[in-house]
Simulated assay, not measured.
Amino acid sequence: MKFIIQRDQLIASVQDVMKAISSRTAIPILTGMKIEARSNGITLTGSDSDISIESHIPTEEDGIVNIEDIEEGSIVLQAKYFPDIVRKLPEKTIEIESDSNLKVTIRSGKAEFNLNGQDAEEYPQLPKLQSDDSFKIPTDLLKSLIKQTVFAVSTMETRPILTGVNLKLENGKLNFTATDSHRLASREIPISGSSNEFPSIVVPGKSLNELYKILDDTEENVEISVTNNQILFRTKHLYFLSRLLDGNYPETSRLIPEQSKTVLQVKTKELLHTIDRASLLAKEERNSVVKLSTMGNELLEITGNSPEVGRVVEEISVQSIEGEELKISFSSKYMLDALKAIENDEVKIEFTGAMRPFIIRPANNDPILQLILPVRTY
C-alpha cells in the first residue's frame, strides 16, 4: 500500500475516526485505526464495538486533488501514536507506505517515521446496513434534534435504557425523547417523502454526543437507516454506526399533563439569566434549588437560598401570567438546561400545581417540549 495525501485532509478524517477508538476494548486490534487505500480514495475506520466510524477521503473532489500515487492495500496502525505523528509532521503532504511485512513508513519533508502495522484482514468487518428502508434529514436539523434532547439522558447505569435517546418514526413524524426520570426533553419534526416507519428504538446518548461533534453545520442531508440492533448515519464522506440499547423505553406520553392551572409567557434570556444568578447562592445544595413565585402585575419572584451562605431575591417581569397563584421549587440546573435547549426568544411555561411536573415550550408552538419535576422544599 502506498499513497501521498494532503495533511489537512488526513488530520480532519483522523480526528473524526478517533472518536470511536477506545484504549479499553476487549479486542486488541480495535485499539488501532484501519487505513484502506483504493483508487477512488482512502478510507479510515475506527470502532469500539459500540460505535464505528468510517471516514472517506476521495482522490479528487471539486477539481482538487487530495491523494496521489495510490497503490491499493490496507493496514491497521496504532491509534495511540498515528494521530500525533500526523498532526506534527512538517510539510503539507504526507507519504504513507507499507510493505509485505506490515512495516509502515510515514514521510513528510525530512521527517520519517517507521511504525509496526497490523494485518487489516484481522480487523472486524463492519456490518453493511441495507439502505432500502432509510430516510433523510438535513444535517443541521439532526444536530438541533440531538442538542435539544440528549442532555436529558440519565448518567446512571442503574436503568441503562434511560442513558439513551428514544427515536420513533411514525405517520411521517420523527420524534426524539430523552428522560432521566426527573426531567424530559422531546422534539418532533415532519419527515417528508419517506414511507418507512420504526416504532421505538433507543440510541445511546454517548453515541449521539459523538455524532453531534463530527457532523458539520450544513444543510446537506444525512441518510439514516435502522436495523434490529444498529443505526447508521451516513453523509457524503462519513459512515457512523451505533449499536442500539436493548429493552423497552418507558411510555413517556402519560407524564405530560393534559391541562394547566398557571401559564406564563416570558423572555427566555431574561429568565435564564435570573435563574442563573439565583443559583449562585444555592450551590451548596445537591440540585441548586431555586424557588419561583408569581406576584401578580405580571411579576415573578425568583429566590435562591442557602442557610449557611445567604439569600438572593430577584423580580422579573413577564409577558403574561394566567391562572392561579403559584409557588414552586425546582433544580436550577435542569431549568437552565431546558431554557438553553429551546432556541426561541420567548417561552411558555405551564404549571399544574406546586408538586406536579411542569412544561416549557417555545412561545411559537414549535413542537419542542421540556418537562421538569419540581423539588419538595420544607
Rank of each mutant, 00 (worst) to 15 (best):
E71F: 05
L77N: 08
I64C: 10
I64T: 09
I51W: 01
E61G: 04
E71V: 14
I70P: 00
I57V: 10
E54D: 03
V76D: 04
E60L: 10
E71N: 09
T59Y: 00
I75S: 12
I67G: 08
G63Y: 02
G63T: 05
I64K: 15
H56L: 14
S52H: 00
V76C: 14
D69R: 08
G73S: 10
E54L: 06
V65F: 04
D50S: 08
E72H: 05
S52W: 05
G63R: 06
N66Y: 13
S49F: 14
S49G: 03
D48G: 13
D48H: 06
S52G: 12
I57K: 03
L77F: 02
V76K: 09
I51K: 01
E61V: 07
G63D: 13
I67C: 09
G63S: 05
I67Y: 00
G63M: 05
S74P: 06
S49C: 11
D50M: 09
P58H: 12
S74T: 10
E68C: 02
I64R: 10
D69C: 09
S49V: 12
I64Y: 03
H56S: 15
S55Y: 01
V65M: 14
E68V: 11
E68R: 15
I51F: 07
E68A: 10
I57G: 08
T59H: 01
E60G: 00
N66P: 04
I75Y: 06
P58D: 07
S52K: 04
D50I: 06
V65K: 15
D50Q: 13
I51A: 07
E60M: 12
E71G: 01
S55A: 10
S52Q: 09
E61I: 14
D48T: 13
V65R: 15
S55P: 05
G73I: 06
E71M: 07
L77E: 06
I70Y: 02
D69Q: 13
I67F: 03
I75Q: 05
E68M: 02
E60W: 05
I64G: 00
G73R: 06
I67P: 04
G63C: 05
I75V: 11
V76R: 03
T59M: 02
D69E: 15
I75F: 06
I64M: 07
G73L: 10
I57D: 14
I64P: 01
I67M: 03
V65D: 07
H56V: 09
H56P: 00
E61C: 04
H56F: 15
S52D: 02
I67H: 03
H56M: 13
E71T: 10
D69P: 00
